[in-house]
Simulated scan of single mutants.
Amino acid sequence: MFQQLFSLFNIPKTYYRRFIYAFTAVCVSISINLVQAQPSFSISWLDLIKSGLQVVQISNISKAQEVELGKSINQELISSGQAKIYRNQSIEDYITQIGQRLAKTSQRSDIPYTFQIVDDDGINAFATMGGYVYVNKGLIAAADNEAELASVIGHEIGHIAARHSIEHMRESAVKQGLLSAAGLDRSDAVQIGVELAVSRPNGRSDELEADRFGLDNMTKANYAPSGILGFMQKLLQAGGGSTPSFLSTHPATSERIKILKELIDSKTANLGDGLDNRAYKSRISSL
């Protein structure tokens, strides 16, 4: 039937073969879903075809797809009010300046990065896939100098570089029964991404890896590595025994500090930029 139609409209045979290959691939995908799909994530073949371009293959997501998905997650975080962005051009420019300096020397400098300030006095920071980093206004105020703030931003870039959110998204989709043979529906992917950004379910290995990536990043960007230790130790002491939300993830902050001390050469810990407390307080005075 298809061959007759192609002949009728005088379409070259090469295009006919390409069509047959594509049509066969779609049929195979549909048959796999019909045979293997669980009731919890069953989907009609018409819906599958309609949403074909909206399906995300988490296991082998491309760089462009990750960036686009991160953009959608960011838009949902903002529009839903879960990330209320703080508008202060001077502070925004300063955070972007620090962030882009770190992005250039990060383990994933090949993607665009966006740095935003959350209008929240809590001491917190988080990141989503595709280069989106969020820093609370309260954390900026809590830092004593630029090196301390850079250590936090570098840590969040480390999570992006290690693609932690992508792995967590895959795990979450499997647990919720949303992952089919065709992949993960884009709308579900965005919703999971928002949930992950808010809950920040990073475990021991993720946090330690982000710490190592962040330390390496800030060192390459010529920030004094002692900034990462100063920030963690100061927050623990100021907390009166309670751990700030930014540090309340597994592993214990004391373990993270111990490991970082082993990685930092005490002779060069204070070499680099960002240790001028007075200059930093001046830069964030409009906060």
Rank of each mutant, 00 (worst) to 15 (best):
E92G: 10
S90T: 13
Q82M: 04
K84D: 08
I78Q: 10
A83Y: 08
L77S: 02
I91N: 06
K71F: 09
S59F: 11
I98H: 06
R87C: 10
K71Q: 11
S59D: 15
S59Q: 15
S90A: 14
T96A: 14
Y94N: 12
N74V: 09
N60R: 12
I61P: 03
I73P: 05
E66W: 02
Q75C: 10
I78M: 08
A64V: 01
E66L: 05
Q82D: 03
K71E: 10
I98F: 09
I78E: 08
I98W: 03
L69Q: 07
K63R: 11
Y94H: 13
G70E: 01
R87S: 14
A83M: 14
S62K: 03
S72Q: 14
I61R: 06
V67H: 03
G81N: 01
N88G: 11
D93Y: 04
I91H: 02
K71Y: 09
I78V: 15
Q89K: 15
E76I: 00
S59P: 07
K71C: 06
N88L: 09
V67P: 07
K63W: 00
S90I: 04
Q65C: 01
I61A: 11
S80Q: 06
K71T: 12
I78R: 07
I98G: 10
N60K: 13
N88E: 15
Q65H: 04
L69W: 09
A83F: 12
L77E: 02
K63E: 03
Q89L: 13
G81V: 01
K71H: 11
Q89R: 14
N88Y: 07
I78A: 07
R87F: 10
Q75R: 12
Q97A: 12
L69S: 02
L69T: 03
I73N: 04
E66C: 06
N88W: 05
N74M: 09
S90Y: 02
G99S: 08
Q82H: 07
S79I: 04
Q97W: 04
Y86R: 03
S72A: 15
N60G: 15
N88V: 06
N60S: 15
G99T: 09
N74A: 13
E76P: 02
G99Q: 06
L69E: 05
A64T: 03
G70P: 05
N60F: 11
S59T: 08
Q75E: 15
N74F: 13
S80E: 03
